[in-house]
Design a protein around this nucleic acid. Structure first.
Length: 204
DNA sequence: TGCCAGGCCCTCTTTAGGGCCTT
């Protein structure tokens, strides 16, 4: 059984919303957890080979001047493929990060074997009383302290990691499940809101 | 020329529309 508390939690900053319309990754951050403990981190700016918009400069705080001297995608993604090797992956709104991960890895002729789970989909099932399911809102809702700025890749992946571990604890405490498998979290995302409780009780 | 993401989820649904979430 592969454990839900052993994974790489990642986050991309990008030039826009879709690699299909020419957008590129400009920063990647990731946290590696093994049995609930942080064992490694990964962070790098990525030179996208194009100028990013003033909106993205403002949104992320990452400037064109910073990116000019950053390593290219092939270099960064080759290192990152090694970092995630053998691990399952988590991201907040994973469908977004998966699209960029796939596109940037392909450029570097790299691949990965792990499966993806989405902290946002899990939170929609588990934290149904949260005001919304934006990462920053969920962090506040969970009472997790912060000491940095959102919209940077490593900080967001650190926050997603804390949220992920908070939700695993929540499941353990509420449903008395000793060990949660990664596949249970993936299945949880596909349950209807109403069926979450009975599903988790059946896992206990 | 004009437009430009896409997957998930809810509901006034399923022959669809619109909000959420990510940058």
């Amino acid at each position: 059984m592969s454990r839900a508390d052993t994974a790489v939690i990642l986050d991309f900053e990008t030039s826009g919303l879709s690699p299909n319309t020419g957008d590129r990754a400009i920063e990647i951050g990731a946290v590696k957890i093994v049995e609930g403990k942080i064992v490694d981190r990964f962070q790098s700016l990525i030179n996208p080979g194009m100028r990013i918009s003033p909106f993205i400069e403002d949104y992320t705080g990452i400037s064109n001047a910073l990116l000019r001297d950053a390593p290219n995608s092939e270099h960064v993604m080759t290192q990152f493929a090694d970092f995630i090797n053998g691990f399952n992956l988590v991201a907040h709104n994973a469908s977004f990060d998966k699209r960029f991960l796939d596109a940037e890895l392909q450029r570097a002729s790299q691949d990965y074997m792990g499966s993806f789970s989405c902290s946002m989909l899990v939170s929609r099932r588990l934290l149904q009383n949260a005001p919304n399911h934006q990462l920053a809102t969920l962090i506040r809702y969970a009472g997790i302290t912060t000491d940095g700025s959102y919209h940077r890749a490593l900080f967001d992946s650190e926050m997603t990691t804390k949220l992920w571990l908070y939700m695993l604890d929540d499941i353990r405490n509420r449903y008395d499940i000793e060990q949660i498998s990664f596949s249970v979290l993936q299945k949880l995302s596909k349950k209807t809101k109403k069926s979450v409780h009975s599903f988790l009780e059946s896992c206990a």
